[in-house]
């Protein structure tokens, strides 16, 4: 599992906007668009500027979506791993 104390930020090679209750990510280099569901969009919005750790992100998700804390942390970790592999987010320095 990815360390919950790790903050992530949106890659400089991606653009992201929330459209309604979903998210749209445009990868500049691949000319590729990725659509995110509501929780995914909310997580990436929270990560975007790199000021929140994954633990912070999960805590916000617990409040907003009424999900279990452990589930939120697992989801945030898994989601961050997927986004990092896809080049959408990058580690935002030392926690």
């Amino acid at each position: 599992m990815i360390e919950l104390a790790q903050p992530y930020r949106l890659s400089s090679r991606c653009r992201f906007r929330v459209v309604g209750d979903e998210g749209v990510v445009v990868r500049l280099d691949g000319a590729e668009v990725v659509a995110l569901n509501g929780i995914g969009a909310a997580m990436l919005e929270l990560m975007r500027d790199g000021t929140r750790t994954l633990g912070d992100v999960a805590a916000c998700i617990v409040e907003r979506f009424d999900v279990d804390k452990l589930v939120a942390e697992q989801d945030a970790s898994e989601f961050a791993r997927e986004l990092e592999e896809a080049g959408i987010v990058e580690k935002a320095g030392s926690p």
Binding site: V19, G20, E22, V33, V34
Partner: peptide, 16 residues
């Protein structure tokens, strides 16, 4: 869920 559906919703819901 797709980009196309997001655009269509923006069109319908007046999301600039």
């Amino acid at each position: 869920m797709s980009f196309r559906s997001s655009v269509e919703r923006a069109w319908r819901d007046n999301h600039l």
